[in-house]
Design a protein around this nucleic acid. Structure first.
Lengths: 124, 124
DNA sequence: AACTTAAGATTACACCTGTAATCAAACTTT
DNA sequence: AAAGTTTGATTACAGGTGTAATCTTAAGTT
């Protein structure tokens, strides 16, 4: 699995929002939430390319970046990894931990029920 | 939140298994799964103490370590953090991602149902 | 009391990360 | 054509991390 740092992920996330995109578009998007210097984001883009998370095409002197994988694919792998490390690969204990500490809302419960429902339909 | 590295967490996890415990007991426990050198584990114990994740009492020339927090408490915080970063704080999309990629077993589903059930009883 | 360990403390060192600044080359503007 | 600007490339640098080796010193042994 490609290992991304927190900051790298956030840059990639800005690209996932809408891609392909140039560095300046990504910088623009991130400027709302982050106080990152433009140079910082360029560095992170370079590291993402080096790690194989992004590819790019040249357009004049700019690069046009595209993610090398989909967000869902990446977050699934991260999730599996996380759940493996902290909960021996089982997902219910994570949810249970949330429930016990009052972290679940009625909406979360409804969404979870729907996920279960869909899964069961899928099965039959 | 105390930030622990992967390796640090695994050492702490070995302590959570049964505590308090001495360094050599922890080293013994880890020897099954990990090829870590004894010195490595000692280093990690030191870092855990420095970070405030462990405390210890002296017993002769040994230290007897105790975790400063419970596993469930730590994993809950990590989980919140994780879900915030990757799923904007909502838990269902994580579960949904697993479902879509056939990562859920009937057992997982049953466990999840139970969590939901318990939550609903709790509510009333 | 002197000698030998073994436990923790200190030091090591390369790679990763966050966070840029500087450099070099190409494109724009005057 | 010269100068300025903007882009990516290279360099920087401190703190974290994985992975130990070496140093100190108190405890155990003879």
């Amino acid at each position: 699995m490609i290992e991304l740092s927190k900051a790298e992920f956030e840059v990639l996330d800005a690209l996932w929002l809408n891609h392909p995109a140039t560095a300046s578009q990504i910088i623009e998007r991130l400027s709302d939430d982050k106080q990152w210097h433009e140079k910082t984001i360029k560095t992170l883009l370079g590291r993402l390319v080096k790690k194989g998370a992004l590819s790019f095409k040249k357009d004049g002197r700019q690069y046009i970046y595209t993610p090398c994988m989909e967000r869902a694919e990446y977050t699934l792998k991260e999730s599996q990894n996380f759940i493996e490390r902290f909960f021996s690969g089982r997902i219910a204990p994570l949810v249970s931990g949330f429930a016990k500490s009052e972290q679940l809302s009625q909406q979360d419960i409804n969404e979870l029920k729907k996920v279960i429902d869909d899964w069961e339909k899928q099965q039959k």
